[in-house]
Amino acid sequence: MYTLENVSKAYTRSTRKIAALKNVSLTIGAGQLVAIQGPTGGGKSTLLQMLGALDRPTSGRVALGDAELSHLPDSRLAGIRAKEIGFVFQGFNLIPTLSAQENVETALEPLDVPGDERRRRALAALESVGLGDRAAHVPSELSGGQQQRVAIARALVKEPDVLLADEPTGNLDEETRDEIIDLLEGLWRDRGLTLVIVTHDSAVARRAERRLHIKHGTVTER
């Protein structure tokens, strides 16, 4: 699924240069569940950005299937994100003014899905995460766990190949955390997704087939 060759990412903050990723080479097979761990500032989110076509490496090659993510123009990257990649964020990142259903619909917007089908699919996605009865609620009317479920529905409604989650349980209590991880694991199993989860939580990481550890921009397998 993913091929990374000698991927480096450096940020320049005024005069200081920060190497967030250093010569990372790895492959992730289709349908794998990969957990990424490591200390804060180690480069986990940076790696996820490379996988998610949100940013390009400073040097090296990132490919998703046939798509050379490191060398495509922004507009093509946006198209790939719209079709093939689902994101789940630590902070849920729902649009505060939109209802749960409308939030899910935003993921179908760039795919130009007709209104009727869009609403139907969004509702179905909400039902699949157990929130069919909360479709009309705005995020502020939902609990953290419910908001993350809406975000997962948003990530999955377009039926992507890849689901990337950056600390999806970081803002949740333990009980809710387990629910969300169960949900993600279930979806991964049912849909044959490639699932990459960044997490601090070893309990979560233990359930993955493969664990990567990033420290100072260097990746090691566990």
């Binding site: 507009s75 946006a78 198209g79 994100r81 990649i85 649009i95 993921a107 917007e109 760039p110 795919l111």
Partner: peptide
């Protein structure tokens, strides 16, 4: 977030 889920700049 909208950009991350695939919204184009134009949109």
């Amino acid at each position: 977030t909208l950009k991350a889920i695939g919204w184009s700049n134009r949109r």
